[in-house]
Measured scan of single mutants.
Amino acid sequence: RNRTTFNSSQLQALERVFERTHYPDAFVREDLARRVNLTEARVQVWFQNRRAKFRR
């Protein structure tokens, strides 16, 4: 699988949700994935990586 590149509008939407919660539930992830046209799995991994970055 190739690395996913996120465009600025996708990142903006992802970061907005991250500000609200670092652990979005499945419903939030599904909705977000639909809105930014990504798979739920990509959204889930983005949050895992974003939390790791946040802890650094």
Results as ranks from 00 to 15, higher is better:
T5F: 07
A13D: 08
F6D: 12
N7I: 06
D31P: 00
A33C: 14
A26C: 09
R35C: 05
T5P: 14
R34E: 09
F27N: 14
A33P: 02
R1W: 11
E40L: 10
R51S: 02
L11N: 10
R35P: 05
A41P: 08
Q44R: 12
A41L: 06
Q44G: 07
R16T: 14
R56Q: 15
V17P: 02
A13P: 03
R42L: 14
W46Y: 00
R16Q: 13
V45N: 10
F6S: 06
Q48M: 12
R35D: 04
R55L: 09
F54V: 14
Y23N: 04
T5K: 13
E30D: 12
F6R: 05
R55N: 11
E30Y: 04
V28D: 11
E19L: 06
F6Q: 07
A13R: 02
E19T: 14
L32G: 00
P24W: 02
R1M: 11
E15V: 00
T21M: 07
N7D: 12
T39H: 00
E30T: 12
E19V: 07
V45A: 15
N7L: 06
L32Q: 01
E30K: 08
Q12Y: 10
K53N: 12
A41M: 08
V43E: 01
R16V: 09
Q48A: 07
D25E: 05
A13W: 09
N7P: 02
N2A: 04
R34W: 04
R20G: 04
Y23I: 03
T4G: 12
F54Y: 15
F54E: 15
R20Q: 15
A13Y: 04
R16Y: 10
P24Q: 00
A26I: 07
V28T: 15
R20P: 00
V17H: 05
K53T: 15
F27C: 14
A26F: 08
R20C: 10
V43M: 02
F27V: 14
L38T: 14
R50W: 03
V43L: 06
F27I: 12
T21S: 05
T21W: 08
N49F: 04
V45I: 10
D25M: 10
R34K: 13
P24G: 03
Q10A: 04
L11H: 07
T5V: 13
Q12T: 14
V43P: 00
F54Q: 12
F47P: 02
Q12L: 11
Q10D: 06
N7R: 04
T21K: 00
Y23R: 01
E40H: 05
R16W: 12
Q44I: 05
A33I: 13
D25S: 11
K53A: 14
R50S: 05
R42V: 15
R35Q: 12
Q44W: 04
V36F: 13
R20M: 11
V17Y: 01
E19W: 14
R3F: 06
R3E: 12
R51F: 03
D25T: 08
R3Q: 10
R35V: 08
R51Y: 02
Y23V: 02
E15N: 01
Q10P: 02
V45Y: 14
V43Q: 00
R34F: 03
R29L: 13
R16A: 14
P24D: 00
L11T: 10
R50V: 02
T4C: 11
P24H: 01
Y23A: 00
K53R: 11
A26M: 09
K53G: 11
L11V: 13
Q48H: 10
Q44S: 12
S8I: 09
F6Y: 10
R1D: 12
V28G: 03
Q44D: 14
R42N: 11
F6C: 04
R29W: 00
F6K: 04
L32R: 03
L38P: 00
E30F: 05
Q44V: 05
N49Y: 03
R55C: 13
R55G: 13
A13S: 06
A41F: 05
N37L: 03
A52Q: 02
F54D: 13
R3D: 07
A26D: 07
F47Y: 12
L14K: 03
R29G: 01
N2V: 03
D31H: 05
V45H: 14
N2D: 13
A13V: 08
P24Y: 01
T4V: 12
F27M: 15
F18K: 03
R3N: 15
V28H: 03
D31M: 08
A41D: 08
T4H: 15
E19H: 15
V43D: 06
T5E: 13
R42W: 07
R56I: 11
D25Y: 00
F18M: 02
N2E: 13
R56M: 11
N7C: 04
Y23W: 11
E40P: 09
Q10W: 05
R35F: 04
E15W: 04
